[in-house]
């Protein structure tokens, strides 16, 4: 792979890789390190590039594997949910009370999704937030497309139950 190809096809997806790593690891610093490591690994494995059909999915798969390794090796602890509650963007058009209430609801949804097993959570985020197709998710996670559908259905069902239990309604 030439440097040009790397710069035009791989480097532009780094923001996506970073977002993906951030969701898995829960903090900026580690997400940046993992993104950098993933780009280095892609560069090192450049001879494989010719066989690839979906470069972006391949890069994301590498990022996920590195992030999961990091979580495993360091017995990683996700950053405190309370810390991140403060990062929620404020909506200035509404009254402070409404904003607080909305942030509270958003935080509950966030906690419900983050409480899912990693596979469910990742599939749900890739589909419902990033808008990836089943095939793309299957490529990223290196699993069968039917598994993606089954796991997505279970993930949505679990989130729905959690939100019902928490009595999170309305917005």
């Amino acid at each position: 792979m030439s440097l040009d190809r790397f710069l035009t096809q791989v480097v532009p997806v780094r923001q996506k890789l970073y977002r993906f790593a951030f969701r898995l690891l829960g903090n900026e610093e580690d997400a940046q390190d993992i993104t950098q490591d993933a780009l280095m690994k892609v560069w090192d494995m450049q001879e494989k590039m010719a066989e690839l059909q979906n470069m972006e999915a391949w890069c994301m798969r590498i990022t996920r594997n590195l992030a999961l390794d990091k979580i495993k090796s360091r017995k990683y602890r996700m950053s405190d949910e309370l810390d991140r509650a403060g990062e929620l963007p404020a909506t200035h058009q509404k009254s402070p009370h409404a904003v607080t209430e909305q942030n509270d609801v958003m935080e509950k949804v966030h906690v419900a999704i983050n409480g899912l097993p990693e596979k469910y959570r990742t599939i749900l985020q890739l589909r419902d937030i990033d808008g990836h197709s089943y095939q793309e998710i299957a490529d990223i996670l290196d699993i069968d497309m039917n598994d993606v559908k089954v796991n997505l259905h279970r993930a949505r069902k679990t989130v729905r139950e959690k939100l019902q239990n928490l009595q999170v309604y309305g917005l």
């Binding site: 993104t35 609801v105 958003m106 949804v109 729905r160 939100l163 309305g170 917005l171």
Partner: peptide
């Protein structure tokens, strides 16, 4: 009303601007 918070969350996350590292 049951689905509103979830889709609101998805919308907010999708709109979030991420600074590229």
């Amino acid at each position: 009303q049951e689905a509103a918070p979830l889709f609101g969350y998805f919308h907010r996350e999708a709109e979030k601007v991420w600074d590229a590292p």
